[in-house]
Design a protein around this nucleic acid. Structure first.
Lengths: 164, 164
DNA sequence: TCACCTGGGTTCCACTTCGAAACTTAGAGG
DNA sequence: CCTCTAAGTTTCGAAGTGGAACCCAGGTGA
């Protein structure tokens, strides 16, 4: 039942994905719209109507996603009050959410490189204070930068075999 | 209508997202299962039943996603023939797909850091040949490594204002 | 030549999720 | 108490999903 000749150990197909970090992260932010909502918050939109209008998402789905993100601890509800208005909620990133910047940056960089005009990116990532531009890279413990094609998934110490 | 005090220029809410690279990349790989399928192929599974069985995805959806990925130029159909069997298709990554390694690596790293036992990752990324481990990092043109919280989206030269 | 096996899909159906638009709600101000 | 506003809810037809059964092409053995 094994297929010799593949670069990855044959045990990959026995790896229990219930344990997999990619799947876990996707179950947190992998639904339609979730990452785009987070990106809007990263970009400085914090209010329901702002996000709904800019993204063109249905209000029903936005309600649901915001609730999930708050429950997941990625967004935090704060109150704001504009003059002459009652207090309303605003959504802000939690520290846990800041580390999703890597995911968003990787998606942005892929789109800029392969799906758009590389020289005319609509959005840039700036390094706060410094003003330089930020990009994503893969780096090996050996110190070198690594190409995507030079990376191979391997089973780690926490790998669990499927039970069934 | 603008909200002073935010770090991002007020024009963000006027940015036309039809042009946005994050949205473009997500429309390519943002559907449920798509990234997990690609990860299986990265890991060395290339055949319909292998992927369906390991992922637990319905065969109907797998058929659809593979077709989309081939149409999008991320997967390539090749034929293989096992002794005593007719020739059947296998799915392999195209060069364009290799650059999605950044996205997968970022998702993996987030899950390892925030959702699992960091010291016992089920999957590691190895640098081909070298044997070292690969991680994702954000780096500024100034040369420094950058934290997720120190990155701010900014409008680039290709930014387009919404028409409506 | 014909039944059988295998892997790679299709088909069908019940169920969930989505999008669009209308509707509701809780204060603040007049 | 009437109105205004932002933040949801509701409703309903359309689209997407999971599961299981079914189909199909080509290679084999009888």
């Amino acid at each position: 039942m094994t297929t010799p000749g593949y670069p990855v150990p044959m045990e990959w197909r026995e790896l229990d994905l219930g344990n997999c970090s990619v799947a876990a992260t996707l179950s947190l932010v992998g639904e339609r719209w979730t990452l785009l909502i987070l990106r809007e918050v990263f970009a400085g939109l914090h209010r329901f109507d702002e996000i709904a209008d800019h993204l063109g998402i249905s209000r029903r789905v936005l309600t649901e996603r915001l609730k999930q993100l708050v429950d997941a601890g990625l967004l935090e509800r704060r109150s704001y009050q504009e003059a002459g208005q009652r207090s309303r909620p605003e959504y802000h990133l939690t520290p846990r959410a800041h580390d999703l910047q890597w995911v968003l940056a990787a998606l942005l960089q892929y789109g800029d490189t392969h799906l758009g005009d590389t020289a005319n990116a609509p959005v840039l990532l700036e390094h706060s204070g410094c003003g330089g531009h930020v990009h994503v890279e893969l780096r090996c413990t050996c110190g070198q930068e690594v190409a995507g094609s030079a990376v191979e998934p391997a089973l780690g110490p926490g790998a669990v075999r499927v039970s069934s």
